[in-house]
């Protein structure tokens, strides 16, 4: 069972995220920190207040983006569909940044609420621009529409961020996400939202597959294309919004995970979603751990690490696209 191997890799990545870091932790710390937590012991604090929240944030955001990428690619039959490339990340980030700037509050509740309208509008906009409403979602058209939307939203993010006081730090976070702010993010609520998105995705997976047979054939099989599209966009909004609220915009993860997952799951969308969620969580956690080691004690943001890994994967996928092919 190849899916089991993915689960093992995920567990290894999670374990690495808890055990590897700037501060070496004695084996006894792991149990002590959970049983008798001492807030004045740096080792305990490292485990419970630094590494554990980062791991949770990585698992939530990684799994959510894995699902988001899978759904986008299946819905649009476009292997280059990804919340980062198509501007959904940037939409959520822009709405969040604009909202917190205007309201002057950036607490957990505010972050949780503001992330979703941006993701929803951006995913709807890119789908409409790409011709999705007319059932004509060519890979090139969609990718171009997404790239344009992404560029527009990113420049809006810069425009808002650069007039703020903490300029560079704010800007960095909203251009390339990271897991370092996990402690101040609404992890519990976003885990629930991402899980809801995942469940909806699993439920509508067969209908998305039917839709990919083409509008007429899928209607013949009793599918309502509009409803399925709306459901899929809801999934993308929920998962991407949750991921951005937790970790900021993480690029390329939703792009590279689904094709890798298909190597394991084959062309079965439900299985692909499960594997993508696990692989996304593993990859983001791995990227974060690597990022905190490469230039210690300085850290490379997880969003930059995924872009570093994802860039070559993007080229690999782009090379494999042939006219008329869907994978």
């Amino acid at each position: 069972m190849r899916m089991l191997w993915v689960a093992v890799v995920l567990m290894l990545c999670a374990l690495g995220s808890l055990t590897i870091g700037v501060r070496a932790l004695a084996p006894s710390v792991y149990l002590d920190a959970l049983l008798t937590f001492d807030p004045s012991d740096p080792a305990h604090v490292t485990l419970v207040a630094v590494r554990l929240p980062r791991l949770l944030a990585g698992l939530i955001a990684g799994a959510a983006l894995g699902v988001a990428g899978t759904v986008m690619q299946a819905l649009t039959r476009n292997p280059l569909a990804d919340p980062g490339i198509l501007g959904v990340n940037a939409g959520a980030a822009f709405a969040l940044l604009l909202g917190t700037s205007l309201i002057g509050r950036s607490d957990e509740a505010m972050v949780a609420v503001l992330s979703f309208p941006g993701a929803a509008l951006a995913s709807l906009a890119v789908f409409a621009l790409g011709g999705g409403l007319r059932g004509d979602v060519g890979p090139v058209r969609l990718t171009l529409a997404g790239a344009a939307l992404n560029a527009l939203l990113l420049s809006l993010v810069s425009a808002v961020a650069l007039v703020r006081q903490e300029t560079l730090d704010v800007f960095r976070f909203w251009v390339a996400g990271s897991l370092t702010q996990a402690t101040t993010r609404p992890l519990g609520a976003m885990a629930a939202v991402a899980a809801l998105g995942g469940i909806i995705a699993l439920v509508i997976a067969p209908r998305i597959e039917a839709l990919s047979l083409g509008g007429a054939l899928s209607r013949g099989l009793g599918t309502h294309p509009r409803r399925v599209q709306a459901g899929a966009l809801l999934v993308v909004t929920l998962t991407t919004g949750a991921a951005v609220a937790v970790a900021g915009p993480i690029a390329f993860l939703g792009l590279m995970v689904p094709p890798l997952a298909r190597l394991v799951s084959g062309h079965n969308l439900r299985a692909e979603m499960v594997v993508s969620a696990m692989a996304g969580a593993a990859l983001l956690t791995f990227a974060d751990t690597l990022g905190r080691l490469l230039m210690a004690p300085s850290e490379i943001r997880a969003g930059i690490m995924t872009a570093l890994i994802g860039g070559p994967v993007f080229l690999w996928i782009a090379r494999r696209i042939r006219p008329g092919s869907t994978t």
Binding site: S40, A49, V50, T183
Partner: peptide, 17 residues
């Protein structure tokens, strides 16, 4: 710091070590 960034500072658990 500043008033609006104080909350992040309070939430910084490592500071309390």
């Amino acid at each position: 710091s500043s008033a609006e960034r104080a909350a992040d500072l309070v939430a910084l658990a490592m500071r309390r070590t």
